[in-house]
């Protein structure tokens, strides 16, 4: 089977489904925007963040974005925190909880 993720309706018929209930399209969770589920949203302060990436390791929905940036002192590439994917973040607050207290770069605020 092949289908266009852009046209995915969430209501495929018997004949359109792959055999055995398997799912053949990798990354299909990208299609499912869960960002509007949250009542609290994480707010990230770029200036406070030290890019320890603890939140990246803990986030259950892989919503901490990262980027590579050149470190002028060492001349090597560092991995830096690049904010939060709010389209998929469900607002669980784990990132804020694990952010080191001395840093406190992520705080939870009312989502709507």
């Amino acid at each position: 089977m092949s289908f266009d993720p852009q046209k995915y309706t969430g209501a495929l018929t018997v004949g359109e489904l792959p055999e055995g209930g398997i799912w053949t399209e990798p990354g299909s969770s990208l299609m499912r925007k869960t960002g509007d589920w949250k009542t609290l949203k994480p707010v990230w302060d770029k200036n406070k963040c030290i890019s320890c990436l603890t939140c990246w390791a803990y986030c259950p929905d892989s919503c901490i974005k990262i980027e590579k940036a050149l470190n002028e002192k060492t001349g090597k590439e560092d991995v830096k925190n690049a904010g939060i994917d709010l389209e998929h973040c469900k607002g669980c607050g784990i990132c804020a909880a694990v952010c080191p207290p001395k840093v406190a770069a992520i705080t939870m605020e009312k989502a709507r």
Binding site: G10, L12, V14, L17, E19, G21, I22, W23, T24, P26
Partner: peptide, 21 residues
Amino acid sequence: EKPITVGSIDLQNYYFEHRIP
């Protein structure tokens, strides 16, 4: 080369369609 998901959860919206085959 062709990653797939086997044995995923299937609730009211798909279980019936998956039993028919």
